[in-house]
Design a protein around this nucleic acid. Sequence first.
DNA 1: TCTGGGGTCCTAGGACCC
DNA 2: TCTGGGGTCCTAGGACCC
Length: 423
Amino acid sequence: MYALVDCNSFFCSVEISFRPWLRGKPVCVLSNNDGCIVALTKEAKAVGLHRGDPVHQVRDIIERNDVTLFSGNMMLYSAMSKRVMSILARAATRIDVYSIDEAFLDLSDSGRYRDIAADMRALAAQVLQWTGIPVSIGVAPTRTLAKMGSRFAKEYPGYHSVCMIDSESRRLKALELFDLADVWGIGRRTVPKLAALGVKTPLDLARKPEEWVKRHFNVNMYRTWLELNGQSAIDTMEKAEKQTISTSRSFSHLTDDLEVIETGTANFAASCANKLRAQNSLAGRIGVCIMTSTFREDLPQHIEMLDMPLCIPTADTTELVHAALQLVRRLYRPGYKYKKTCVMLSDIIPAAGFQQDLFDPVSNRPERAALMHVLDDVNTRYGLHSLQFAVQTGHEAEWRSKHLHNSPDYLTNINEIPVANAR
DNA sequence: TCTGGGGTCCTAGGACCC
DNA sequence: TCTGGGGTCCTAGGACCC
């Protein structure tokens, strides 16, 4: 059996955990640039807001209902996620952290549990007490069914946070009632295709013959079909190193100023370099994409990407920034109002054991690697932008995203740690 | 005025090999 | 009239996930 533990409206729950007076109120967390709603409480849903709504289009709903807004604070959310995951890890022999707010627990060690439903309810209560984050848990013989269960647990308070799909009759009942579009692995594009083939519910799908599934769909759908029928077919191993690393941000304003675009792009390249070194890898290829705003039909559009091999795989910020700037200068065309750029690294290999190259144009690579170490150490200790390259600085107001509703870094910055007063 | 960001896997088709 | 067979590697695009 597997358990899927899902944090309810995770980003909102983290913010509320530090401001208990917001519990039961409409709260939203916004995307970069405070552009869209990316997470919302059920109270916010109830007043007519949806995930993905552009804030400027729902401004009146927000004001009328006194909805509290937060700019996304990923540092805070990942720190809280680690706390939740460490509590979950104590309750199972194996945990697969599937995303920032979800984890699969392997419950196959039956000697460990007295009564799985009761034990999982105790686990949910413990996470809530220790972190303030409410979770929903689904338990089933396959991961797809466990995800379904957690959804039922979230929607119906009667389950008290835990829904068990542990018998044939419960499985059939769940398949009949669950929304096909919400099945793990079935997305927007597939629902109409299934409907045209006469499949309206997960139960319809599960009852189709194996040959039918293989004929109409690919191996992913076949795996989902197996899982719905109670046969485990999808694994969620600990993810290895990333195969691609990218950073992209919308600018705070449209701009046709190459210097502004260069500054933003240099920062995105530096951010990619940080992520690359954090997983101890080197990149063999770099790409840059430049974009105007596709929402502005009144303006001419230019969206283009260029990429090139790096002569030696590297994780050196200077080299990556230099290459990114070369590419963005080639992409830039005067007369267009640009909205964002994206820097992408690929052909990623482990840094350990990489052979020196006889034709490497950089002669002092060991010294430069040491410099990168210092850079990372200083920035870890004193904050992300404490030490940076000159080319990354200036023009802040013209490109860096707006975050007008930021919450403090309660868990990662000693100066912003919450203070409790007791009398 | 304003519209997010970061990933993975699979498949079809082209280029190339013998 | 009629034009092999079998394989690999790469890329672009699509679909999915959070």
